[in-house]
Amino acid sequence: MSTQSGFVTSATELRAYAPAADPAISSLASRTASATPRLVTSPQNLRTEPGPMRFAIIALAITFLTVFVVLPLVVVFAQAFSKGLSAYFAALAEPEALAAIRLTLLIAAISVGLNLVFGVIAAWAITKFEFTGKTFLITLIDLPFSVSPVISGLVFVLLFGAQGYWGPWLQAHNVHVLFAVPGMALATLFVTFPFVARALIPLMQEQGTQEEEAAISLGASGLQTFFRVTLPNIKWGLLYGVLLCNARAMGEFGAVSVVSGHIRGETNTMPLLVEILYNEYQFVSSFAIASLLAMLALITLVVKTVLERRLDEGHMPKDDPSDH
């Protein structure tokens, strides 16, 4: 695999992994997210190093970020626009490119939508009830983060492939999972499952069950309690999880690559198409699509910052008008 397309993938993963999986990366990339405990220490307290040392550390950090984050991002856009604006838009208007964009949006919509529901249910079960096997379930939620995406994809090949467990049965009933949208959606669903649940669990744990109990004692039904009390309390955390989930779903390469089959114009998502075009020396087209993913990354970053600020406000939107 080429170095350039390789970095696009890794940049996406860096951003997607950051808040939940690796606190070291997250503190580099942005402020600590709600999923990890917030350590607010005044910088003054840390000024124990002499001046030159401080300068060296700051310079090192900035140099590192410039070389490994800013520079690659600039290169993507430079390459994308190297033959001018018209070539850029022509590359994006290619039927193959449009198909990849459509497919990426479809898979993201399916996996984010389902993960939204499953994530809320998992977080609800873990934070509001006591049951045996709860610790195991919490560990299980993190599994997709600790498994290589390629292996996640292979699991589905083993399950649904021609030689897999359910493959023959599916073939007999003419159901296409592998090398089709269902398989790609499943792989993406698996890889992105932790985001929503991980954004919600600490938040819901902190909030406890008292407001729900109050609502029920006031005569609210289960659904009324969820939609009027629980959901408004977790909405910023939920949006945060959905945002990261979406970023990862659109940027996912490894797992989707294994189950996609790379059928041109049919089962290529944007990251997959970037690699194919690059390998065929179609640099402008390749980087044009890569630039879309990079823009998604930038937008995600901005929205994420806004959401984190919301979450920091003690989950208390003051300008929220009464909506009843």
Binding site: Q210, E211, E213, A214, A215, S217, R228, V229, P232, N233, H315, M316, P317, D320, S322
Partner: peptide
């Protein structure tokens, strides 16, 4: 029911 820690709906 009145709770020790009030349990008021914080977003209302």
């Amino acid at each position: 029911f009145v709770f020790q820690h009030y349990a008021l709906f914080r977003h209302m």
